[in-house]
Each structure stands twice: as C-alpha cells, then as structure tokens.
C-alpha cells in the first residue's frame, strides 16, 4: 500500500487552463469590448476621435495584460500553479507563450482597424 501523502503538490487545473488560454481570453475581451464600445459610443453620438481613442486604449491594455506571460512564462506558470515534471511544464509553457504571442498579434491587428476605417459610418 502506498502512502499517498507525499511531496509534490499537483498542478491546479483552473490555473493551468487559464495559463494556457490567457492571451486569447484577453484578446477575446478586447475584441468584444471594441465591438461593443464602437456600437454604444456611436449610438451616444460620440466623435470619431473619442471612439478611436477608446479602441486604442483597449488595444494597449490588452497588449499590456498579455505581454508579461509572453516575456516571463516561468513566472506566470508559477503564479498559475503549473507544476508537473520539467518536460511537461516545458511543453505547457511553450504553448502558453506561443498563444500569448499570437494573441498580441491578433490584438494589434484588431485595433489597427480604428486607424484605417472611420467610426460610425455605415458599411453599405
């Protein structure tokens, strides 16, 4: 019979999932907030400059929230409770970091629309 009260604590499930998906979750929130903000502010009659500033702000915020994971995956992994063997944790960090980099690209790409297209103008 094995004494299961031994050393290494398990990885936290929620923490690991959040760690892996962090970048895209933030992108999703930035995307949704940009779409909703544009709709709402247009309805309120806000100027194009205000709307562009809001979208730019959301983009900067998104990048700022994602960047720590992309730059410091080890620290982020510890914060999220990702443990496990070195090889396993290494793979999870690779995935999380690549997701974060992809998400930064996506967030910037989403925000760029505000630079190129005028707010509140009907599409067709």
């Amino acid at each position: 019979m094995v004494d299961r009260r031994l050393q290494r604590p398990p990885s936290t499930t929620i923490g690991t999932i959040l760690f892996l998906l962090w970048g895209l979750v933030i992108w999703g929130l930035q995307f949704s907030a940009s779409y909703l903000a544009h709709t709402w502010l247009c309805r309120l009659g806000a100027s194009a400059a205000v709307i562009d500033a809001a979208i730019a702000g959301l983009t900067v915020l998104a990048v700022a929230l994602i960047a720590p994971l992309a730059l410091q995956p080890d620290w982020s992994a510890r914060l999220a409770g990702v443990r496990g063997g070195e090889a396993d944790a290494g793979h999870l960090k690779t995935v999380a970091r690549a997701v974060a980099l992809l998400s930064i690209l996506a967030a910037v790409w989403t925000g760029l629309g505000a630079l190129m297209v005028e707010a509140c103008v009907l599409g067709r």
């Binding site: 544009h38 629309g113 103008v121 009907l122 599409g123 067709r124």
Partner: peptide
C-alpha cells in the same frame, strides 16, 4: 486553441452586406 478562439470573432463576416458600420466590419474582417 487559436482556431477555436478566433472562430468566435468571425461571425459578422456572414453579414458584411447588412449595413453594419464599417469599423465594426473591420474588426470581423
């Protein structure tokens, strides 16, 4: 994972011709 997430941000591309504002279309494009 990326495909799964991005796919939720595309739906309005089925509605490009419905008169939705250009900047909104740009997000989905």
């Amino acid at each position: 994972i990326g495909t799964g997430f991005f796919s939720f941000g595309l739906w309005v591309h089925h509605m490009f011709t419905t008169g939705i504002p250009s900047l909104s279309l740009a997000f989905f494009s």
